[in-house]
Design a protein around this nucleic acid. Sequence first.
RNA 1: GGGGUCGUAGCUCAGCUGGUUAGAGCGCCGGCCUGUCACGCCGGAGGUCGCGAGUUCGAGUCUCGUCGGCCCCGCCA
Length: 591
Amino acid sequence: MDSLGALRRTHTCNELGPDHLDREVILMGWVLRRRDHGGVIFIDLRDRWGVTQVVFNPERNADVHAKAHRLRSEWVLAVRGTVCRRPADMENPKLKTGAIEVLVNELLILNVSETPPFPLDEDIEVSDNLRLQYRYLDLRRPEKAGNLIMRHQAVMAVRNYLSENNFLEIETPMLTRSTPEGARDYLVPSRVNPGKFYALPQSPQLFKQLLMMAGMDRYFQVVRCFRDEDLRADRQPEFTQIDMELSFVGEEDIIRIAEGMIQAVFKAAGNIELQPPFNHMTYDEAVQRFGTDRPDTRFGFELVDLTETLRGCGFKVFNSVIAGNGVVKAINAKGCATFSRKDLDNLADYAATFGARGMAWIKIREDGWQSPISKFFSADEIKAMGEALGVEPGDLILFGAGPAAVANQVLAELRLELARRLGLIKEGTYDFLWITDFPLVEYDQKEKRYSAVHHPFTAPNEDQLDLLATDPARVKSRAYDLVLNGNEIGGGSIRIHRRDVQEKVFAVLGIEPAEAQEKFGFLLRALELGAPPHGGIAFGVDRLMMILTGSDSIRDVIAFPKTQKATCPLTDAPAAVDRKQLTDLSLRPDW
RNA sequence: GGGGUCGUAGCUCAGCUGGUUAGAGCGCCGGCCUGUCACGCCGGAGGUCGCGAGUUCGAGUCUCGUCGGCCCCGCCA
């Protein structure tokens, strides 16, 4: 093994070309592949930037050639050599450096490597567990490294853009206090305060508001947030937000800043030109037309409400749903009358996973409507449904019936599934949509109380303050979400900056004055000491990068992600700790 | 908390209705090879069929349990 010593590289493995012919260069990197012909040996040398072919020729230097025979995958090399044009017809168009090769005069073996536990040079699927256990190997693969590079470019664009717009990046505590509502907290026991706990922040929400009260005016932070909930492809227990807050602004100011930032990110990270302003849609319209507050509007299949059309109809299932204050909605799956019984059963099973009790359907044939349920409808009802849905022969009607929330979710998921099955979702399109006019609160049937749709600090619509006490469910909030291709990538609101309003909202949420004082006294006090009007927004960096990189999971854009059980196969976290560590924290284990 | 799916060589996988010695490709090791770029040719090594019970004359295969990966519901202001 050789020492690096004073030797330094002159170029990366992605920058040599015909301009460098005959130059002596020094490259360093990993052995991606070796092709040993007994005589001449070719090594593809890889670093973060790319790949360069280096050549060992026994006629040029027999000692170096002999040494090169030992080389194996992922050994770490330094080579000194001469840039040569490749022989005619032997250029490799797949490599950026494919016009040249480096004829090696000196080889340093900086480190050896065992055979890697999985191949790094092919695009084959490797189990997630193994990849995470050897994450540092997985990240050597250009696709994975490229995701992290693009993430860096995106975050740099954010910092530059916001800095140019007079924002200050300010850090907020990671050790803070647990707050009611929201997700489960990660707790950290306090050694010097036995029996008391910090919580890791679910977001810097209150601190950024306090920074507005501190007169910082424009704050941002690229900040880690923690939520102890079950994981998904797009949810990790720790994730990164671009968090910002502004003073003396309304919704339109924040939306304009956010659009400019997203535009800068897409340009810097993906060389994609966006054209703000983005479209807007109210929450009510989104739910009515798409069944969700984060609609994917890249395709049709919109929901049609048939509740009034079918009130009193002959189909008992629908009738009882409607009588029980439920809704009957439907989508027209254009051209899907060709679906087999198996296809439909399959869709019904899928619908059932979202709480559907069944999935009624009607095929529109040239010779009439074909369905197990069409016989229950009158001619007038059939005519009205057909017109409402705009059906033509060859179409398929899918119904969702039940409580509004269930029917909406079922049909929202069905239209997504249909679009996927029919290949209607065009890759490379970026469909942004602002959702506005959210309800301030919604009634939680299980908890028998109202809970905040956004969070407890979101400002109610100013001319609906009177409704807070009488009919809070009708109050709209000053919140807004940014949806991209059906993914919620950001959300924010104008905040409450008056103590009396904040107290009223707490009251709606069932937070008693004593509890409000105990948990949020510091905020209420700050609201008494000159809190400016303010608002903000936060974006999920991981989800944004998942979409920009075309990844299926945010794990692919996080350097060291966790498994679905929130473990890290690389470090084996979480892990047991010494009993002494627990007793230091005044924790008395019962195991 | 619940549903689905996967687990066989270092990796990716095949292995039917239970049946003799569990296979393939890649990788790895050895040999040959001076223009390859997924180099080629010849030879070889390599297995706790995730783990544990059970059924059976006999289990990679069937049953039950369990562990782990992934996807989803609930949950995630």
